[in-house]
């Protein structure tokens, strides 16, 4: 499942851009590949990240996957509910399973992301 209006990365993160704030999560394809997610390591609030910089780690019993930042900016909020209920990413990766919000410092980094149509085509090409 790919949601229209979001931006996507080749590493299967999504970003919802509202003004200069981006909400970040991992895509349906990513959660499907990982299987039952049992642990999420969240970034620190106020941490500055570059585009493709590390945000955290999502782990299932089978695999550990790094989460990279789709944009450059500063972490403003993290979804601490995931610490006790990491399965929210499996259940609802585009809403309740969000990982963090980032105040974008360099809006040009958005240009490097894929649209929903481009991401769909990217998934098919894999």
């Amino acid at each position: 499942m790919v949601i229209e209006g979001l931006y996507y990365t080749e590493e299967h993160e999504w970003a919802k851009i509202e003004g200069d704030v981006a909400t970040i999560g991992i895509t349906d394809h990513a959660q499907e590949l990982l299987g039952e997610i049992t642990f999420v390591e969240l970034p620190m609030v106020n941490k500055e990240v570059v585009q493709k910089g590390e945000l955290g780690v999502v782990e299932s019993s089978k695999a550990a996957s790094d989460v990279y930042s789709p944009v450059a900016g500063k972490i403003t909020k993290v979804n601490s509910e995931l610490e006790s209920a990491p399965e929210k990413i499996n259940e609802d990766c585009y809403n309740a399973g969000w990982i963090c919000t980032i105040k974008i410092t360099d809006k040009s980094t958005i240009d490097n992301l894929m649209s929903s149509k481009q991401y769909e085509a990217y998934l098919k090409s894999m």
Partner: peptide, 10 residues
Amino acid sequence: PGQAGIRPVR
């Protein structure tokens, strides 16, 4: 232990 929120042992 292995409840949700415990990092998986690998």
